[in-house]
Simulated scan of single mutants.
Amino acid sequence: MATERSWHMTVPHHAQGTRAARHRLRAELAESVPAVLLTDATTVAAELLGNAVRHAAPLPGGTVRLSWRLCTDTTSQVVEIRVTDGGAGATPRIRRVGPDSADGRGLYLVAALAADWGVARDGLGQSVWAKLRHPAGCTA
């Protein structure tokens, strides 16, 4: 039988707000997922939140929204992370960067850690989401 839990929070569209969101995600998932999945989920959330602050407009009220969902069944645990902002001029995409580039690796890192990721637009704004999967029963 599968279980599912979800969380949502809205924070100010700046670095302090995104830091609070990362800390809350980590605290909420710490007792429920293996350390490797917790680390990967925190890293992905940090990258998506950072991109939202650097590259996108805020939601109304000067905010950004972080949502995450944990689904557990007999074969795996899946953490889906979604960051919603006011959108940017261009659709988020992985960029090619050189070894000396100071930035531009965020979505590359998200794609490397996630089983799947993408971008969705709705009436609220633009969401970038990622799904991270870990085998059930594995504690590494």
Rank of each mutant, 00 (worst) to 15 (best):
S6C: 07
P58L: 14
E28N: 09
R19K: 12
L66K: 02
E80M: 09
T18F: 01
D40E: 12
V11F: 03
E28S: 10
E4M: 08
S32P: 00
H55V: 06
T74K: 10
E31Q: 10
A2Q: 07
H8M: 10
V79G: 00
V33Q: 05
L25F: 05
L38C: 08
A57C: 09
P58M: 15
L70W: 07
P12K: 09
A56K: 01
H55T: 09
S32I: 00
E28Y: 00
H23A: 13
A21C: 07
A27V: 04
R54Y: 02
L37P: 09
A52F: 01
L70V: 10
S6F: 09
A57R: 15
G17Q: 01
L49K: 05
T10L: 13
D73N: 15
L25M: 10
L29K: 09
G62L: 11
P12G: 04
L37T: 11
A52I: 04
T63D: 12
R54T: 13
A21W: 05
T75A: 14
T63C: 14
L49W: 01
N51L: 10
T39H: 13
R26S: 11
T18K: 00
A57N: 13
W68Q: 02
T42V: 06
E28K: 08
R24C: 06
G50S: 12
S6E: 14
R22N: 06
H13Y: 07
G17A: 05
R5M: 04
S6I: 03
R26T: 11
R19L: 09
T75L: 14
S6D: 12
P58H: 12
T18D: 03
R54D: 15
H13E: 02
V44A: 03
L48Y: 01
D73I: 05
H23R: 14
A46M: 03
L66M: 05
R5W: 04
G17R: 04
A41E: 07
T3A: 10
T63I: 03
E47R: 07
P34W: 02
T3L: 11
A20Q: 13
R54M: 12
T3Q: 08
R24W: 09
S6Y: 03
T3Y: 06
M1K: 07
G50L: 08
V36T: 09
W68N: 01
V44G: 02
T72S: 15
T75S: 14
Q16F: 08
A56L: 11
T10R: 15
D40T: 07
L37N: 08
A15F: 04
V78W: 02
H8N: 08
A27Q: 11
V36F: 03
